[in-house]
Nucleic acid binder design. Sequence first.
DNA 1: GCGTGAATAT
DNA 2: CATATTCACG
Length: 410
Amino acid sequence: MGSLPSELTLDLRPTFLPKTISDFLLDLSSIQPTSDKLSKLHDFLSRLEDELKKIDAFKRELPLCMFLLNDAILVLKEELEKCRVQNSLPVLEEFIPLKKEIDQSEENNNDDDDNNNNECRDKMNWMSSVQLWNNNNTTTNNNASDQKHNHNKLETKKMEEEEQSVTVAEEPIFQPCSSNRNGGSAFMPFSTYSSVPVTTVTLAAPKQEKEDTVINRLSLLTPGMKSLREGFGSRGSRGSSSRAVSSSPPTVHPSLRAGPLQPQQTSRKQRRCWSPELHRRFVSALQKLGGSQATPKQIRELMQVDGLTNDEVKSHLQKYRLHTRRGPASSSNQSVVVLGGLWMSQEQYNESSKGSSSASGSPQSPLHLATGSRGGTSPTEDDSLEDDEDAKSENYSWKSHIQRPGKVGV
DNA sequence: GCGTGAATAT
DNA sequence: CATATTCACG
């Protein structure tokens, strides 16, 4: 256990690591020659700043680290100032520019080596390459390839202030759908609204959600729902059930509140992404309500999805019916097979906690290959496919690309 | 409010 | 092209 980081003990001899900052300062005060003092001080400081740069990439994940580091740096800087005032030595000049130039050259000049701080750039490189966090907030980050280059921006006090504020205001919620179609491969579980700002990186198997165990409420945040057409300007805009805007940040400072100034831009809402989970809920609700006779409103209420509107459910239901009717099942009698499995596999079983023991729980045979298969002759005819109570085996295989090849003589 | 079709935007 | 939103009509 006596293992101290090699870099601390071996490499830099004059710079030991104190247990605490106050320790360090205490020790410092015992040093007579100011030059030594300064040297020590600045050395420590530079290392701290180095560290700060490293974790800057993870400032969201390590807010406290940032805080501590910044604090330490601040203290040391003050001390440094003091010493500097006493006898102005040019020595410090070396370090001051260090952070200064960083913020200047925020352009990512990787190749543009500044023999000066080359090394610190390296460190940042390895850091930036890691990319543990998944930031998928802030509107459309789809093309946001440039969003990350701000980690170069290092400022002294200003920065730290920003950090703190950011840390507080941050919300851990994220929803798995921006632009990439999560083909059932990797999507994170829904956000569970924990007040903890730290975003735990959970890349677990998406199959078994623990949603039932913990929460039944999905909190859906529309990615860019900053301003959902609240304007009543256009027509009889359905007040729709734009209920529950609970997703609004904890502290909604009215500073930005400008009623008349709201540009309103797009009247169109951000597309709701029907993630597998969402759809699963949808289907579950549908089943519970008895399939066909389910109305959007009922479904919506049963889904208990926060922020979901009637219209959305309606729309989805529409498409659902559409696809379930004449998608995979009708046209060719070919064994359905494959299918994304998206819909069918997930649609059943769940609601263990919802209390609904109930009857509709019975799983329906997913693949009913032995269908009437009367479609051989007239595939174009829409076979009377009644998916009522149980026949829900329809699959949400919209994605399966199984377009009905049947040539409909329009 | 609900179902549907169509226009339209992503 | 597929999907989602919105509008319009019954």
